[in-house]
Amino acid sequence: MSLLNKTLLGLINPIIARRVVLFHSIALLALGCGRPAAESATKSEFRVALLTPGPISDQAWNAAAYRGLERIRDSLGAEISHIQTKTPAEFEENFRQYGAKGYALVIGHGFEFQEAAQRVGPEYPRTVFVTTGGEGTGPNIAALSFAFDEPSYLAGMAAAAVSKSGVLGEIAGTELPPVQASFAAFAAGARSVRPDATVLTAYIGNWDDAGAGKEQALAQIARRADVIFQNADAAGLGVFQAVREHPGTWIVGSNADQNALAPQSALGSVVIDLPHAFLLVARDVKAGTFQPRVVRFDIATDVVRWVPNPATAGVPAAVQARIDSTRARFARHEFTVPAGRP
């Protein structure tokens, strides 16, 4: 019976979600009417494209990437194009289309784009293909690597310090390698402050079902978790909702600065400053000085950061001092996240 219920819910949820999207898109359509003319007026030689695996309205991973694309347009006068893609077949096809149109820089926003970059790259040598994550490189192929585990470790320390129950939750979309590394670091950070901390981990199974995200969060709260580290993009908005409804529970945001999503309950956000990283890469590509390689951004580059929520200064001073010193040791490359149990 409950299985059937779940299926029905599963069927209905996307319908509700799509309704919301529909409404949203009509508004966007109205807003977007005057745009193409303006864009063709500022035609530029330097063209940059972004492929995202999800909607740029997620206020997280994809939204931050789109802001990065906009910053490249505003700072470097680039002509920009964005497409949301779902399947590996689409990744490859769109890489090809941008390559054929002579784009200077094409960014595939996720490690999952690296195969497509490897296949298409050699055919369009004048285009630089960059994937956010992954480690595939080539004469015109580069990968951005983010030490997301470093600020996740700091977040774990802060989370353990404010937790009353000693139970921490982690919720993500699917089991992707960078997410697993970040969760392991969060748990390690927490145990460095509180060795007996219990860490619950849940994967929703997708990155866009906010209803399922909320359900997972409620389940963890019921198991006495009082700090939840979410990394689920659009589905994570459901986690935020669950936490807002349960005062006394904290949430840690991911990728973008999500503190404003729950000003009362956000402990902080583990941020990747994607706009900054994209701009650094695009500047080099435009100047013709870009060296295709794995470009690593860690705490020392300030592209990945632990951003506490100033409205909720709940971390005791002693732990805060330890967080600050750990951060400094990360920045000096004197410390790496210890490998440990997740």
Binding site: V21, L22, H24, S25, I26, L28, L29, G32, R35, P36, E39, A49, P55, I56, S57, S81, H82, I83, Q84, T85, E90, E93, N94, Q97, Y98
Partner: peptide, 17 residues
């Protein structure tokens, strides 16, 4: 639909509609 996003800058949700 993909080309509309790429070349005309139409948001993906509007394309779906």
């Amino acid at each position: 639909a993909a080309a509309m996003q790429r070349d005309a800058g139409v948001p993906s949700v509007a394309v779906q509609v």
